[in-house]
Every structure is written in structure tokens, then in C-alpha cells.
Design a binder for these strands. Structure first.
Length: 423
RNA sequence: GGAGAGAUGGCUGAGUGGUCGAAAGCGGCGCUUUGCUAAAGCGUUGUAGGGGUUUAAAUCCCUACCGAGGGUUCGAAUCCCUCUCUCUCCGCCA
């Protein structure tokens, strides 16, 4: 949620910023809803002030006196009027709030212009895409792949996109998660093991609702949502809280399975490990002082990059253009790993600064040393990292002539062996 | 899952229909005393929204907030209903 005051006082500034995202938002409707709500609010408040004054006067009167009875009769009409207008006010407020939820976050000045993914800027490239396995094939064509990553039985037991990981398949997932968590811990992120079902208030605070409702699994009969990312429970950890300024920045990370319905996905993007309904991911979260959030974004991106460098995987960093930025982000980098078998880049991390957009919805604030007043924090998050696509690249890029996969040194202590075998 | 009790400000806790945004204590902040610390004394102390004023900060006015939502009433922290959460006991259980 953006600051309603900013919209009210500088609608053109907001309009221009939203144009950069190429989103179609009816700002005039939002402004009209705001004006209608405030007008009614003033009516109600002045009536209530009259009620309060009468109340004080009546408290001093003996009950049953003619003056008292007359006052009751008089205030009965005011009371009815207040009730009627309060009903209208509530409706107008609800309409205004709903309208505000349709307003996206504003992009940072450093976000490049652009409309489509093709307009994203290649920020940096690392490693040598040519220097990978000569035997590389798409990972789902590796001999024995379905023994370790059993999609057929997963489909039987649950549905498409819910594979079983078996033997070395399960071990490599665990090894990657351990590697990510240990490295993140060293970088200062405190590990958290959060709930993987969240309520509607939490999903709204981080922006999944109402925007992406159809992307989440919802449970019955309790209407909880399976988390699409650990970002949701983690960000909501401090919902409705005021932190001490001295406590900032707060760094946290968490592993959770992530559940995404991925409605509308199709084609070769969804082959093998490329796109799953359930996958494992470690997420890094930061709550920071507003003045530091862009420095922190660079550090966050570097923390995610270090994980890829440690695995020896070629990757590139994209700076997302306005049109591909997303609804809630102010600025976003995507990390893409080179998949030698598929000969394409796979997104494995997204590092974003949300500024106060999530913090305002979630009411996460800090007490400013300077003013003594609560101010909104800036929240940032980034994947560190998502397992399946890193795994896909690892399998393809490191495939040996004998059909085994040579693991990077960093994974060996976590996996327990130097080679992963499909036999 | 069953039965009962409860939810008040940063914390503890009083308040059963009107002058209650809410006693008291603790904590925090400021000042005084003190060589420093400790202690004591005095003062102060939430959040949000709207409006006036101002370049702005400051400030002033109004309104809301006693777990959440609804109801009764001229008037609700207080009475009624629903929900959520916490605690105790019983049951079940990794």
C-alpha cells in the first residue's frame, strides 16, 4: 500500500510512477473514493462531537427531570442520524480501502524503462557458459532421472508437479538446503522455521491477496493458505509491531516448502524440475531503516550471488524494467543460472526492495531515535535460493561421461560423497 | 474434541451504564539533589484518522481505539450475541 497522503497531495507524481510499470490503474476512482470517504467522515465526527457534549451535560442532570427527558428525546434523533451515516461511512471506507489495494507500489528512480521481459537490463554476468559439461542434456533426459525424481508416482499420489525425491535425489535436496542455510547463517541471517499455513491477514500484508489469490492453495474448512514462499510468514513475524531503531537491520532466513498452483503455466517451461507446484526454497528477509534500504538491497543480491558462485554455476543478474517489476516491488533483481542442457537461463532468485509497501499493510514500524515517533521500516527479501532449478543446472552442467554428476566442493560435506549417481 | 475461566495502555493491574483515553504501581523520558553510582523528590508519558494553521518543524481542534465484529441504549471498557486467542482440567496424539 502506498501512502494515501502522497496520492491525495501529488496524484500526478503517483500517476507518472505507475505509468512506468505499465499497469492500468483507475487513479481517479481511487481519488473519488478518498474524497467521498473523507466527506462522510467529517459529517459523522461532528455529529459524534455533539453526542459527546450532550452526554457530558446529561451526566450532570438528575435522571427523570424534565430537562433530562427533553434531552433524551432530542438526542434520539441525533443518534438515529449517526447510525445511518456510520453505515454509509463504513461502506465508503471499505470502498476506499479496496481501491487503495489496487494501487501498486511505485518503482524506484533507478528502475529502467521497459514494458516486457525483453526490456530487462543484464546487470552482470558471471562464469563461463561454454566451460560446462560437454555431455549436457536437459536434466529430464538424463538416464535414470525418474528413479531419483519420480514424477509419475508423485502424480499418482498427489498430482502433476509434486515429485518424489528418492535416494540421491532426496540427499541432494537436503545437501543444497543445508548449504544455503549454513552460508546464510554465516552472512548474518538468523534461521527461522516458520508455519507453512498462513491466514488471510498475513497473505494480504505481503501482497499475495487480493492480487494473486488464484496462485495459492487454500485449505478447508479453516481457510488458511499454503505459503507460496517463506516471505509470507517471515515478513508477518513483526506484523503490528514497533521495533527499536537500534534493533535494525534485522536479517532472517527460512527454509520452507513452497506451494504454487501456477495456474496458466504450460509448455516446455514446466518440464522436469523447471516449474513445480511444491518446491523447496530458502528465503532471506530484511527489515531495515529506510535510509539504508538500497545499500541493503545490493548486499542482499550479493548474498544470493555468493551461493551460486560457491556452486560454480554460471549465472547472470537482471535488473527488472518497470513493466516486468511486479505489483509490490520498488526495485528487483533476478538471478538466472545457466542451464547447459536446456541452453537457457533459469530464474533461481528474486531480490527485491519493497520500501514501505508491505510495511504499511503489515504495520511494521520502528521508533525513530530522532523524532521518537514510529516510522515504517523498509522490507526486502530474496531467494537464497530455490532448490529445483539450481538442481537442474547442477545436474546438467556437471554431468560426466559415465552418467554421474560431479558435485561442487561446497556441497560434498553436506551430501557426503563427491558424485551423485543415477544408477 | 469436551468443560470451565479469562483478554484493559510498554508491563502489572483497578474499574459493572454517564464527567473514563481510562486509578494506582512499575518501566521510560526530563529536571532537581549527589563527587560518581545508588536512592529520593518533582514533572511528563500511547496509537491512528480527519481538520485548522504553517514553507516546514512545532502547535491547536475534532474523532476513534479497553482482543475482533455485531447488538441493546439518549449514552457502553462496563449489558447481550458471535468469533479469535490465552489459561486450567479431561480426552486423544507425533
Amino acid at each position: 500500500m502506498i501512502d494515501p497522503k502522497l496520492l491525495r497531495e501529488s496524484p500526478d507524481l503517483v500517476r507518472a510512477a505507475i505509468a512506468k510499470k505499465h499497469l492500468d490503474v483507475d487513479l481517479d476512482a481511487v481519488l473519488a473514493a478518498d474524497a467521498a470517504w473523507r466527506g462522510k467522515l467529517q459529517e459523522v465526527e461532528s455529529l459524534r462531537a455533539a453526542q459527546k457534549a450532550a452526554n457530558t451535560a446529561m451526566a450532570a442532570l438528575p435522571k427523570g427531570t424534565p430537562e433530562f427527558v427533553a434531552k433524551v428525546a432530542e438526542m434520539r434523533a441525533v443518534s438515529a442520524s449517526v447510525k445511518e451515516r456510520e453505515g454509509q461511512l463504513k461502506e465508503l471506507e471499505e470502498r476506499f480501502n479496496q481501491a487503495m489495494l489496487t494501487v501498486p507500489n511505485l518503482p524506484h528512480a533507478s528502475v529502467p524503462e521497459g514494458r516486457t521481459p525483453e526490456d530487462n537490463v543484464v546487470f552482470s554476468t558471471h562464469g563461463d557458459c561454454a566451460a560446462v559439461s560437454a555431455h549436457a542434456v536437459p536434466h529430464w533426459e538424463i538416464s535414470g532421472f525418474e528413479r531419483l525424481f519420480d514424477f509419475n508416482r508423485g502424480a499418482k499420489v498427489t498430482g502433476a508437479g509434486f515429485p518424489f525425491y528418492v535416494g540421491d535425489g532426496a540427499r541432494i535436496v537436503r545437501a543444497l538446503l543445508r548449504y544455503f542455510l549454513e552460508e546464510n547463517g554465516r552472512a548474518g541471517y538468523v534461521e527461522v522455521n516458520p508455519p507453512v499455513l498462513v491466514n488471510a491477514a498475513s497473505a494480504t500484508a505481503t501482497g499475495q491477496l487480493p492480487d494473486k489469490e488464484g496462485q495459492m492453495y487454500e485449505t478447508t474448512p479453516d481457510h488458511l493458505y499454503a505459503v507460496p514462499t517463506a516471505e509470507v510468514p517471515l515478513t508477518n513475524f513483526f506484523r503490528d509491531e514497533i521495533l527499536e531503531e537500534s534493533a535494525l537491520p534485522v536479517y532472517r532466513c527460512a527454509y520452507t516448502p513452497c506451494f504454487r498452483r501456477e495456474a496458466g503455466s504450460y509448455g516446455k517451461d514446466v518440464r522436469g524440475l523447471n516449474r513445480l507446484h511444491q518446491f523447496d526454497k530458502v528465503e532471506m528477509l530484511k527489515w531495515v531503516h529506510p535510509s539504508q534500504s538500497y545499500v541493503e538491497l545490493d548486499k542482499l543480491r550479493d548474498d544470493a550471488e555468493r551461493l551460486l558462485r560457491g556452486l560454480g554455476l554460471p549465472y547472470r543478474v537482471l535488473l527488472m524494467c518497470g513493466g516486468d517489476l511486479g505489483f509490490v516491488q520498488s526495485k528487483k533483481y533476478d538471478l538466472e543460472v545457466w542451464s547447459a542442457g536446456q541452453k537457457r537461463w533459469l530464474e533461481v532468485s528474486s531480490c527485491s526492495n519493497f520500501e514501505t509497501f508491505q510495511a504499511r499493510r503489515a504495520q511494521i514500524r520502528f521508533r525513530s531515535r530522532e523524532s521518537g515517533r514510529p516510522e515504517l521500516v523498509h522490507t526486502l527479501n530474496g531467494s537464497g535460493l530455490a532448490v529445483p532449478r539450481v538442481l537442474a543446472a547442477l545436474l546438467e552442467n556437471n554431468l560426466q561421461a559415465d552418467g554421474r554428476v560431479k558435485l561442487p566442493e561446497a556441497l560434498v560435506p553436506h551430501f557426503g560423497r563427491e558424485y551423485l549417481s543415477f544408477a
